[in-house]
C-alpha cells in the first residue's frame, strides 16, 4: 500500500526570537518492509538543511535560523510504500529459552535496560501485579495479552499528560495518549527480559477501524523482539498488532530518542506550536492545505540565555 503523508509543524512567537537551532525526525525509514519513495522537507523562513543518520539509523534533518523571526514552519511530505506482513501466529514463535539465548548472543542491551521514560516505578509494579503477567507459555501470546490488557486498562484522553510526562502521570488515573501507553508497555516488556523499542510514526486512519488515537497527529507504538519473527509491532493505544497501516519514521529506546522536532532559541517569547498530519492512501502527495489539529501555547520561562521552546510534539 502506498501512502501520501504531509506533516506540517508551525511555530509562532511573540515577540520575535532569534538564533533558532532545530533537529527534526520526520523522514520515514527505508527498510525491508517499508520504502520511502519520495521525501521533501521545506523550511520557512529559508534555511540550509543538513542531515545525518543517528545511531539507530533514523534520518535526522537539522538547520538554524540566525536572524530575528516571529514564526517558522516545517513541512515534510513523503510517499511511502508499506508492505503488508502477515501477523505472526502463536506457535510460530520460539520459546522463552530461545529468546534468552538470542538475547545473550546479540546486541540488545540498549533495548533491555530502563530508559528515561520507560523505567519501573511503584505504580508500574502495581499495574504489573494486577496483570499477573508471567514468563510462561508462548511469548507472543503473552505480548498479545499484554497489548490488549493495556488497551483495556487505559482510557485514551488527550491533554491529561504532556510531552515530557513520566509514566506515573498516566498510571495514576489510567489515562493518557499513545506516547504514555507505549512507554508503559515498553517498561513492562523489558522487565520480562524481552528487548523492546519505541517507534515514532504515523497511523493511516481508516473508517470503521475504531482507532482511538487522534487523527491528524503523529503516532507512537512499540516493537518487541521475539525469537522467530524478530521485531513485532504492538499498538496498545488501538489494540493492534503492527501491520500495513503503521508507517515507521524513527525507532529509539523511548520518546526522548526520537522527538519529531527538538530545538532551542534565544529570546523571551510566548510561543504557539501547531501540528497537522495527513496520511492518505494515494499515488501522489496531496497539496491541499490541512488545518492543524494540535495547538500548544506556552510562555517561555523568564530567564536569561537559551530558552528551550516547546519543540516537542506529544505523540498522540
Amino acid at each position: 500500500m502506498v501512502y501520501s503523508i504531509r506533516h506540517v509543524t508551525s511555530f509562532v512567537y511573540e515577540p520575535a526570537i532569534r538564533e533558532s537551532v532545530m533537529e527534526v525526525r520526520v523522514q520515514p525509514r527505508n527498510e525491508a518492509r517499508q520504502r520511502c519513495l519520495t521525501f521533501s522537507l521545506d523550511i520557512s523562513p529559508r534555511a540550509n538543511i543538513m542531515t545525518y543518520r543517528d545511531f539507530l539509523g533514523n534520518t535526522v534533518h537539522h538547520f538554524d535560523i540566525p536572524g530575528r523571526h516571529s514564526q517558522f514552519k516545517v513541512t515534510a511530505q513523503a510517499l511511502v510504500d508499506v508492505q503488508a506482513v502477515p501477523a505472526p501466529t502463536p506457535g510460530a514463535v520460539g520459546s522463552w529459552a530461545d529468546l534468552d539465548s538470542m538475547v545473550a548472543s546479540g546486541d540488545f542491551s540498549e533495548m533491555l535496560l530502563p530508559s528515561q521514560f520507560a523505567q519501573s516505578t511503584e505504580l508500574l509494579r502495581e499495574l504489573t501485579a494486577e496483570l499477573r503477567l508471567e514468563r510462561s507459555g508462548d511469548p507472543l501470546e503473552r505480548m498479545l495479552e499484554l497489548n490488549h490488557a493495556i488497551y483495556g486498562a487505559f482510557d485514551y484522553v488527550q491533554n491529561v499528560t504532556s510531552v515530557d510526562s513520566p509514566i506515573d502521570d498516566a498510571l495514576r488515573d489510567r489515562k493518557g495518549v499513545c506516547q504514555d501507553l507505549s512507554h508503559i508497555m515498553i517498561a513492562i516488556v523489558r522487565e520480562l527480559g524481552v528487548p523492546c523499542r519505541y517507534v515514532s510514526g504515523y497511523l493511516c486512519q481508516r473508517d470503521g477501524a475504531h482507532d482511538r488515537s487522534a487523527d491528524g497527529a503523529t503516532h507512537a507504538w512499540l516493537e518487541a523482539f521475539l525469537p522467530g519473527p524478530g521485531w513485532v509491532s504492538f499498538d496498545p493505544t488501538n489494540d493492534l498488532v503492527g501491520g500495513e497501516r503503521h508507517i515507521r519514521v524513527a525507532v529509539g529506546r523511548d520518546y526522548a530518542d526520537v522527538p519529531p522536532t527538538r530545538g532551542v532559541y534565544k529570546g523571551d517569547a510566548e510561543s504557539e506550536l501547531s501540528v497537522a498530519v495527513m496520511v492518505t492512501p494515494a499515488e501522489a502527495p496531496s497539496s491541499e492545505e490541512i488545518t492543524p489539529r494540535t495547538v500548544l501555547r506556552t510562555r517561555s520561562p523568564n530567564r536569561a540565555g537559551w530558552e528551550q521552546f516547546q519543540h516537542e510534539q506529544q505523540q498522540q
Partner: peptide, 8 residues
C-alpha cells in the same frame, strides 16, 4: 542543549 541536557 539539543543533543544533551536541554536545560544547559
Amino acid at each position: 542543549p539539543i543533543t544533551f541536557r536541554p536545560d544547559s
